[in-house]
Write a protein that binds this DNA or RNA. Structure first.
Ligand SMILES: [Zn+2]
Ligand SMILES: [Zn+2]
Length: 741
DNA sequence: AGCACGCCGACT
DNA sequence: GTCGGCGTGCTC
């Protein structure tokens, strides 16, 4: 330890680098001490480049000798970019997921701030200085562009921002000309921070008794940390409860953070919030450009926005006066990041609520087993919304596929039902979770199947346009005309994808409109909107689609939902397979039924006796989930024990196996010496050994104790970092893994 | 991760 | 002779 000659003159920085440590710098002589608070951005020399990092703390001693330290370059902020709570959240997150703090902060901050952009988005505003009278019109008669600009600005005497004017086709040179004529003035302006009143734009909907009960419970702990699990079936009015909670929070002058799944942030969702409240609602989703993202972030931080709605990474957005966090569809897998910093936004949201001492509401019709377990253990309050606001519970029916002749993947019985519902003027939704034409292309003569060059998987056959496509690595290939093995021309598609079902449905129901909704049919911009519009008209139609159809959208004219093949979900290799199946099934089923009549749900299966499936449809989600919880307990799986998955992938299997085997050995030694209660399983080859040309294997750590797991990783991560194979093998630490694949 | 350095094969 | 492959080391 070296003491510096000037106390407090060493800057401990988190830098955007995967290195899991902090870096010390000297303060330039010229800087004043006063403004150096943790959380400000500072640019520093790093190797032979310059990086922008965040100040973590100031100290007067360093592991390194003073002459080994470089001097910081530039102080970018006078006030911290992130408030204490957010800094603490990022520190905790980096620690819990064993990630570098600098990289964690990079995930938390909008790209423009990482690059050093200012924390204000003041825009030039133009305002007119003279009324646009006839005399002035006369003067500008021969300058139509200038006249257009004056007309626009005369309509908005308070001024209009330059980008908005540009979008109306009014160019900056035109405006500058008018300024020279003393007709306009330009000023830098930021939007006001105060909220318009009244807060409400429209009156809230009346609540039923259950909704009121849930709201009362949440309101009674509005000023402190508490976690609520709001469990309500589709159509039970969860969103209205959210809106009423938010209203209370806004009335106290505080803000709300609403997290939604990746595909949940539809224009309709946003509209619902903006229609209810006059207070600005900021949205953050993948469709924003860097500037729009920064604007939303700054609006939340400054308190300008009363509500921030966003997907996973919005969790890291600071709020000036945090009041509540809502996690909608809390069971959704998209809350877990699947690469880099593998955080779970739902779990971090709970920790954030604790830090900020505010309530959090987890909402779902089909809660994750983790959250349900916590509610059953009384760690969360469980708020039930059992009734569907309008329609009654749908009617479920299992259809045995065994030995049945199929057309478009449907048994004769199901075809009959479809016909019947269409004839009554209703819509029918067919769910098939498989894109493309067929999952396999097979040679009838020799048994050859089209496989991916880079993965241990089969290529999916697509017809429009014709090609083979690997859904695991995105590689594509032309459809062969002859079998590459035996030259036969008898190449047959095997299995049923949405494209093929669409084709067969058109033959089976030639007079009906068939609307296919999957990633391929909605790829073009606007295509989704068009399809939704057509569905919303309510004319009889068959809607055929994948997961996309199940999430977010409501189809009031649908009275029959059919799941063409549930069996894939019943026998997944992943331990969450059944949980996922149940959640997806109920989510799809929730599309059935309208206000005035009961909906039907038909489920086709080769396993009509499957106990979990029977329990789900006869007793509902919670009994089904309780059974799964018992199984998890017996098997030592989450939420009863905790898991960490160490993954490795390399150009050869031996490399990643070796790294993980050595890691395991180091782990066993540590378990011995430190007396940790952790089991190490593996390394084993991943369920799909080769993916994108890389061989993958994994080492599983399992324990009753999060503390022991954490302590073990504290040793193992440096072992992997220092291992000579740690470079050749791409490895990652996945705490609380979502998928084992 | 990024970037430099350095050591070997194969090209003008 | 040098151009460039990637193994190795380092980043306050
Ligand atoms: Zn063949
Ligand atoms: Zn592939």
């Amino acid at each position: 330890m070296h003491a510096s000659e000037h106390p407090g003159r060493i800057l401990r920085m988190a830098l955007p680098s995967p290195l899991r440590r902090l870096f010390d710098y000297r303060v330039p002589e010229s800087w004043s001490q006063a403004t150096l608070v943790p959380g400000v951005r500072i640019s520093v020399p790093f190797g032979n480049r310059t990086l922008i990092g965040l100040l973590v703390e100031q100290t007067d001693n360093s592991e390194l000798a003073p002459e080994q330290l470089k001097t910081a370059i530039e102080l970018i902020d006078s006030t911290p970019l992130l408030p204490d709570a957010l800094l603490e959240l990022c520190r905790w997150c980096a620690d819990y997921y064993h990630h570098s703090l600098g990289d964690t902060l990079s995930v938390a901050l909008p790209a423009l701030l990482r690059q050093g952009h200012a924390t204000s988005l003041a825009e030039p505003h133009w305002r007119c200085l003279q009324p646009l009278d006839d005399k002035l019109r006369q003067q500008l008669q021969r300058a139509p562009r200038q006249l257009q600009a004056m007309e626009e600005l005369a309509r908005h005497p308070k001024g209009v921002s330059q980008p908005l004017l540009a979008s109306l086709g009014i160019s900056t040179p035109t405006l500058k000309t008018l300024r020279e004529k003393q007709l306009l003035v330009c000023e830098q302006r930021e939007e006001p921070v105060h909220w318009p009143s009244p807060l409400l734009h429209e009156a809230p909907l009346p609540l039923n008794a259950d909704q009121q009960g849930a709201l009362d419970r949440i309101e009674c702990d509005l000023d402190r940390f508490h976690c609520h699990l709001l469990q309500g079936v589709t159509g039970s009015g969860k969103t209205e409860v959210y809106l009423r909670c938010i209203e209370q929070v806004l009335l106290q002058g505080k803000q709300a953070l609403v997290l939604v799944p990746e595909i949940g942030l539809t224009p309709q969702t946003l509209q619902r919030f903006r229609q209810r409240f006059n207070v600005p609602t900021a949205a953050m989703h993948s469709g924003l450009n860097d500037r729009e993202r920064l604007k939303a972030w700054l609006d939340a931080r400054s308190g300008r926005a009363g509500i921030l709605i966003g997907t996973r990474s919005s969790l890291f957005t600071p709020l000036l006066r945090p009041g509540i966090i809502i996690v909608d569809e809390e069971h959704d897998a998209s809350y877990k990041q699947q690469e880099g910093l593998r955080y779970n936004a739902r779990d971090l949201a709970i920790y954030r609520a604790k830090l900020e001492n505010i309530p959090i509401v987890l909402g779902s019709a089909t809660p994750s087993l983790e959250s349900l377990h916590n509610a059953l253990q009384q760690r969360y309050s469980q708020l039930l919304l059992p009734q569907r606001a309008a329609a009654s519970h749908p009617h479920y029916e299992l259809i045995d596929l065994r030995g049945q002749p199929l057309v478009a993947g449907m048994t004769p019985a199901l075809q009959g039902q479809v016909e019947q519902h269409l004839a009554q003027g209703n819509q029918v939704l067919l769910f098939l979770n498989r894109r493309g034409y067929a999952p396999t292309l097979l040679c009838h003569q020799c048994g050859w199947v089209a496989e991916c060059r880079l993965c241990d998987s089969r290529m999916t056959l697509h017809r429009s346009p014709p090609h083979l496509h690997c859904h695991h690595c995105d590689s594509q290939a032309p459809v062969p005309f002859r079998c590459p093995q035996c030259q036969s021309e008898e190449l047959y598609p095997v299995g049923q994808g949405t494209e093929r079902s669409e084709e067969e449905l058109q033959q089976r129901f030639p007079k009906r409109s068939i609307l296919r909704i999957d990633r391929d049919s909605t790829r073009r911009k606007d295509a989704m909107g068009k399809l939704l519009k057509q569905i919303q008209r309510g004319e009889p139609a068959i809607l055929l689609g994948t997961q996309m159809l199940a999430k977010g959208h409501h189809f009031p004219a649908v009275t029959l939902v059919a799941i063409l093949d549930i069996d894939g979900g019943l026998f997944s290799t992943d331990f969450r397979g059944l949980e996922r199946m149940g959640q997806l099934l109920l989510q799809v089923a929730g599309r059935a039924g309208r206000a005035d009549r009961q909906g039907s749900v038909a489920i086709q299966t080769h396993n009509p006796e499957h106990p979990a499936l029977l329990q789900l449809i006869h007793q509902g989600y919670e009994p089904f989930a309780r059974t799964l919880l018992q199984e998890r307990q017996l098997l030592g799986l989450p939420p009863f024990q905790y898991l960490v998955l160490l993954r490795g992938e390399a150009p050869a299997m031996a490399l990643s196996q070796q790294l993980l085997a050595d890691t395991r050995q180091a782990g066993e030694a540590q378990v011995q010496t430190a007396g940790l209660k952790v089991s190490l399983l593996g390394p084993i080859a991943a369920p799909m050994e080769r993916r994108q040309g890389r061989y993958r294997s994994q080492l599983l750590l399992q324990s009753h104790s999060r503390r022991d797991l954490h302590q073990l990783l504290q040793v193992l991560v440096p072992v992997m970092e220092a291992h000579p194979l740690g470079r050749k093998v791409r490895w990652s630490v996945d705490v609380d893994p979502q998928e084992m694949l």
